[in-house]
Design a protein around this nucleic acid. Structure first.
Length: 567
RNA sequence: UGCCCCAUGGUGUAAUGGUAACACACCGGUUUUUGGUACCGUUUUUCCAGGUUCGAGUCCUGGUGGGGCAACCA
C-alpha cells in the first residue's frame, strides 16, 4: 500500500490500524452490544428545494461509506414535507448527482411523503394519548408563548382541550374544513423545558398547496421534527446521521419515537463541511442563480455537484476529497486547496495530455522548409505507460503561448524564450531565437526562430542544453476553440461571515475569463463531454457540456497545474 | 445570563490513560523534454488553572474562547 495515501476506511496498513472517526466508534460499540443484530442502515435525506453541493457530497460519502464498510444499505429519502418549496426538477437533479458520484441507494427512492398516511396515524395516536392538541392561536401568539432560551414559556389556552375535541378538529384539518393558519397540531410536552424544541413543538400545519408528488391529496403537512425521525423509524434506519445544528432536536427525536413505541432509530450529529472562499447555503446559492451572478445551479464556479462536474471535477476526486476531510464534531473550514489537490491527484494519473495554446503568438521557424510537415510522436500520459502515444503535426509555422516569450526583464530564472535564448518544443525540436516583430503598441506579433534538426525528441544529438520546454500547436492543423478560465467566486475567505456585510459584496468580478482565440492540437476535436484533459503546462480542462456546439469547442479549466515558478 | 455541543501546527484529522502523528498548505532541495509529477528535507501543535494517577491531549472540577437553540423551514 502506498503509505502516502490515507487508509481506506476499515483497513489498516503496515504502520498500524486505520484511524477511525467517532461515528465509527459509536457503530462499533452498538454492534458490540448486539444492537439490531449489528445491522447498519443509514439514509441520505435531501430536501428537494435546490441542487446538491460539495457539503452534501460529504454527507453522502459519510452515509454511503459507513453502509459499505459495515455491509449495510442506504436509503435515499427526499424530505418533502413543505410543498411550497419543493419541486420535481430538484428531485431529478439530486438523483443524477448522487448517481454520478457513484453511489447506489437501497431499493428505489423513498419520500417522506410516502409516509404521510402513517404519520397521520401516529399523530392520531399521540392525540389519543393526550400527548398532542390542536391549537387555534395565531402564529405570533404561539411564538411569544414559547418564551426565550432564558425564560420559560407559557401554556396555550387550548392546551387542555379534551382528547375527543382534538381528534375531531385534527380530522377536520385534514378534510380541509379549516383555513391556513387557523390551527395547528402541537405535541404536549413541557412549556418550561430548557430545550426550546421541547416547548410543545408544532407537528402539523395547514397548507392548501400542491405537492410535487401527492398533488392535492393533503392540505395538512407534518413539520420536520414530526416527520424525519418517524420516517427513519418506519424505514428501519439504525443510524440517522445529520449535521450539528440538529443536536438540540435529538431529545425531541427520541421523545416522539418513545411515545409512539416505534423502531428506535438513533440520531447522531457531525460537523458539516465548510470551504473557504465559498458559501454553502442553498438559500444563498439560489440568490446567485436568481440574481444572475452565475449562469445557473450548474455554473462551473458554483460549489454544487453539477457545477463541479461541468467545471471538470471527477467524481473520484470529490470522493477522495470527502475521505480526506474527516468526520468530527468541531466546526471546520476546509482550505479549497485540498479539493484542488484531490482533483490534480486523480487527473494527473488518469487524464490524457494534449497541447493547447490559450493566448497564441505566431512563431516562424525560418530554417524549416516551407511546405514541409512531419508528424512527431508524443506520450498521451507519462504517468500511465499503457496510455500510448499519438502523432503531433510540426511545420514551419507554430503557435506558442505569448506568456512564454518576453523581451524585457529576462534574467537567469527565466527558462522560456527570449532574445538570445533557446528552448525545447515539447516532443519536437530545440529552437533558438532569431528576431521578433512588434505592433505600434509594442505587442509581440511574430517571432522568428531557427530550429536544430539534430535536436529532435528521442534522437537529440545536438548537445544543446535548453532549460525550458514549451507547449506549441502547428498553425495549419490548429483547431480554434473558446476556453473559459475560472477564478474563485468570492474574494473573501469567509463571504458569509460578516455581520455588517452581505456575501454578495464579495463576489469576484473577475471570476470568469473567456478566451476566444485559442489554438488546439487536432486530436482535441475527438474530445467528449465528461472527459478530462491535461493541457500541457496549463492545467486540467474539459469540454463544457452546455456551451459546446458541433463545430464550436468550448473548454472549461477545472484547475491549473501547480505552479512552482517563483518568477 | 438558561440549555446543548466543541477546543490538538496555518487548515483539517488521528492518537481507545503509556514516545503527539498523518494529510493539505507553506518554505527549501534533488530529478525532470510539463517551472507538472515523483523523491528528500525545514518550520510549526495538545486553550488556561487546579485535581486524580507512576504516567493526562485523553478522566474530574472551575474558567476562557468558539458554535448552536426562541420559522406554521429543513
Amino acid at each position: 500500500m502506498d503509505a502516502a495515501k490515507p487508509n481506506k476506511v476499515g483497513e489498516g496498513d503496515e504502520k498500524g490500524p486505520a484511524s477511525r472517526h467517532f461515528i465509527q466508534h459509536i457503530i462499533d460499540a452498538d454492534r458490540e452490544s448486539g444492537l439490531h443484530d449489528g445491522r447498519v442502515h443509514t439514509r441520505f435525506p435531501p430536501e428537494p428545494n435546490g441542487f446538491l453541493h460539495i457539503g452534501h457530497a460529504k454527507a453522502i460519502a459519510v452515509n454511503f461509506g459507513l453502509a459499505e464498510e459495515y455491509k449495510g444499505v442506504v436509503n435515499l429519502r427526499f424530505d418533502d414535507t413543505n410543498p411550497v418549496k419543493e419541486e420535481t426538477k430538484y428531485v431529478n437533479a439530486i438523483r443524477r448527482d448522487i448517481e454520478w458520484l457513484g453511489f447506489e441507494w437501497n431499493g428505489g427512492e423513498h419520500y417522506t411523503s410516502d409516509h404521510f398516511e402513517t404519520l397521520f396515524e401516529y399523530a392520531v395516536k399521540l392525540i389519543e394519548q393526550d400527548k398532542a392538541y390542536v391549537d387555534e392561536q395565531k402564529a405570533e401568539d404561539i411564538a411569544s408563548q414559547k418564551g426565550t432560551p432564558t425564560t420559560a414559556g407559557s401554556s396555550s389556552p387550548f392546551r387542555d382541550r379534551p382528547v375527543s375535541d382534538n381528534l375531531r378538529l385534527f380530522r377536520e384539518m385534514r378534510e380541509g374544513l379549516h383555513g391556513e393558519g387557523s390551527m395547528v397540531l402541537r405535541a404536549k410536552i413541557d412549556m418550561a423545558h430548557s430545550n426550546m424544541h421541547m416547548r410543545d413543538p408544532l407537528m402539523y400545519r395547514i397548507k392548501f398547496a400542491h405537492h410535487h408528488r401527492t398533488g392535492d391529496a393533503w392540505c395538512i403537512y407534518p413539520m420536520y421534527d414530526f416527520a424525519h425521525g418517524q420516517s427513519d423509524s418506519i424505514e428501519g434506519i439504525t443510524h440517522s446521521l445529520c449535521s450539528l445544528e440538529f443536536e438540540n432536536h435529538r431529545p425531541l427525536y427520541d421523545w416522539y419515537i418513545q411515545q409512539l413505541g416505534i423502531f428506535p432509530s438513533k440520531q447522531r450529529e457531525f460537523a458539516r463541511l465548510n470551504l473557504n472562499f465559498t458559501i454553502m447555503s442553498k438559500r444563498k446559492l439560489l440568490r446567485l442563480v436568481e440574481e444572475g451572478v452565475v449562469d445557473g445551479w450548474d455554473d462551473p464556479r458554483m460549489p454544487t455537484i453539477s457545477g463541479l462536474r461541468r467545471r471538470g471535477y471527477s467524481a473520484e476526486s470529490i470522493r477522495e476529497f470527502c475521505d480526506r476531510v474527516g468526520v468530527a464534531k468541531r466546526n471546520n473550514v476546509i482550505d479549497v486547496s485540498l479539493l484542488e489537490f484531490a482533483l490534480r491527484n486523480h487527473l494527473n494519473a488518469s487524464a490524457m495530455r494534449a497541447m493547447a495554446v490559450l493566448r497564441p503568438v505566431k512563431v516562424v521557424v525560418t530554417n524549416y522548409p516551407d511546405g514541409q510537415l512531419e508528424w512527431l510522436p508524443t506520450e498521451n500520459n507519462p504517468e500511465d505507460s499503457s496510455s500510448g502515444t499519438r502523432q503531433l503535426p510540426f511545420g514551419r509555422e507554430i503557435f506558442i503561448e505569448s506568456d512564454d516569450f518576453k523581451v524585457e526583464g529576462v534574467n537567469k530564472k527565466w527558462f522560456r524564450l527570449a532574445p538570445g535564448r533557446s528552448v525545447r518544443l515539447k516532443s519536437a525540436y530545440i529552437i533558438t531565437y532569431v528576431d521578433h516583430m512588434e505592433d505600434t503598441d509594442g505587442n509581440v506579433t511574430e517571432i522568428h526562430v531557427e530550429y536544430h534538426p539534430n535536436s529532435k525528441s528521442g534522437s537529440d544529438t545536438s548537445g544543446i542544453k535548453a532549460k525550458g520546454t514549451l507547449h506549441w500547436v502547428e498553425c495549419q492543423h490548429a483547431v480554434d476553440a473558446e476556453v473559459r478560465l475560472y477564478d474563485r467566486l468570492f474574494l473573501d475567505e469567509n463571504p458569509d461571515g460578516h455581520k455588517d456585510k452581505d456575501f454578495m459584496d464579495f463576489v469576484n468580478p473577475k471570476s470568469l475569463e473567456v478566451l476566444k482565440n485559442c489554438k488546439l492540437e487536432p486530436s482535441l476535436t475527438e474530445a467528449k463531454v465528461g472527459q478530462p484533459w491535461q493541457f500541457t503546462r496549463l492545467g486540467y480542462f474539459t469540454l463544457d457540456s452546455k456551451l459546446t456546439q458541433n463545430d464550436e469547442l468550448v473548454f472549461n479549466r477545472a484547475v491549473t497545474l501547480k505552479d512552482g515558478w517563483k518568477g
